[in-house]
């Protein structure tokens, strides 16, 4: 089992969706990179991603990794956020038959998993359907 440092160093991304915006071409990378994949520049400013988007594709995991056994079946999707940035996360509060491509979602702060009964609790982002 890895130490908690590995979880800790991703906190800005997991908790606040901090991304890197390239000062050269304006491309936004999540997670941040050291080199822009589009233009090769190495300077970035920190930006927070929007918390709204829509489902680009999805699946329902029925045979999960062991750490996610109690959560299965759960939905997972590629989410296109309002600024065009894509991320991958679970789609919570949603039954499999409600899912559809293009479905509007909002990002919420959720528990992702626990490292066993005595280990750390890992938090992060999940999408939830916007039903208004």
């Amino acid at each position: 089992m890895s130490t908690s440092a590995r979880y800790w160093r991703e906190i800005p991304q997991r908790y606040r969706l901090e991304a890197g915006k390239c000062s050269g071409c304006g491309a936004i990378w999540f997670p941040p990179r050291l080199v822009c994949k589009e233009c090769g520049k190495r300077e970035f400013e920190v930006v927070n991603l929007p918390d709204r988007g829509k489902v680009q594709t999805f699946t329902v995991i029925r045979v999960p990794p062991s750490e996610f056994c109690d959560q299965a079946p759960y939905a997972l999707g590629v989410i296109e956020l309002e600024n065009g940035v894509l991320l991958q996360c679970q789609i919570a509060d949603c039954s499999p038959d409600e899912l559809s491509v293009g479905m509007p979602v909002r990002i919420e702060f959720r528990k992702i998993k626990e490292e066993g009964e005595a280990g750390i609790i890992c938090y992060g982002y999940k999408a939830v359907p916007v039903r208004e």
Binding site: Q90, A92, K111, Y123
Partner: peptide
């Protein structure tokens, strides 16, 4: 609460 919800979330 759902399995992914607690006091912190």
């Amino acid at each position: 609460p759902g399995l992914d919800q607690d006091v912190i979330t």
